[in-house]
Amino acid sequence: MELKFKLTDYRTSVHNNWCPGCGDFGILSSIQQALYELQMDPSNVLIFSGIGCSGKTPHYINTYGFHTLHGRALPYAIGAKLARPDLEVIAVVGDGDGLGIGAGHFVNAGRRNVDFTVVIYDNEVYGLTKGQAAPTLKLGVQTKSLPKPNISQAVNPILLAYASGYTFIARGYAYDTNHLKELIKQAIQHRGSAVVDVLQPCPTYNDIHTKDWYAGKGNVDPKTGKEIPRIYKLENEGYNCVITNDMSEEEISKKIAQMIIKAYEWGDRIPVGVFYRDLRFDTFEERLEKRIPNYKAYPPGKQAISNREGYPIADISKIVQSLSV
């Protein structure tokens, strides 16, 4: 079968100025591959980013692309999605961008369950400003350019997403693009707010959690003497955390407890995959539709507002009447 869109349809000719070996390349190609495999019309896709290395992503993808303000990709994206719920909206954010300066937006987006996807480029540092500690850098860790070890605790993106109300929460690894692409596809297809936290080594400023470290450097199996990769896939170990309406409170609590244990796991074993899917809640758009019956059929971005002669077509006479004596 001939596909309507080729992989190259999702690429631009813009010169990419990320550092050689940057994990961002893996995320970029996973997004492009996911859009290609889902055969999404590029003009139907809106990608929003904030500021930092991740912020440049939209320029490299041949869809509508908006490189917005530091920390603000989410409200821009949500505004667009609510105006045109028929479009596919993706926000790509950095860890400092999304979980530091933009943390308030991240939390509040979760509360709403708007049908969109958030991808977090999680490398624990502020790359573009030369390696300061990001909110995901653990306490006491001293990456290359830090004058002193990190004095603050790290935020856990998986748990923050859960506490905020995201209904799809996954973690991927930038150098496993096949796996990451699948996660992004699932996130896009999920009905509601989806987060994919992507572990993404920064080859320039993060000399602690490097590609080699994730690959198992220093994690030697005492029996075989071989290095064991730190990253493993949740789905390979029978993990599954899908919450549905027909589950009992007890079942749900058990699932969530299991998710929390996995979310804390770090060090010699780091899980990737889908941590959490919650199918119990309507999306924000569905809630709107209950109030405005033709919201999806006739959303804000598609409404006509004037007639042939240019006069407004809104008829406010009933409201005016109610204010008249």
Partner: peptide, 26 residues
């Protein structure tokens, strides 16, 4: 027709969400 009235988490989100919507032509 309809108007979506969206209460945001702060005024930064208020203007940026409105701008995001405006990009789609509304």
């Amino acid at each position: 027709g309809s108007i979506v009235v969206f209460q945001t988490e702060d005024e930064i989100a208020a203007i940026t969400a409105a701008t995001g919507a405006a990009l789609t032509g509304v």
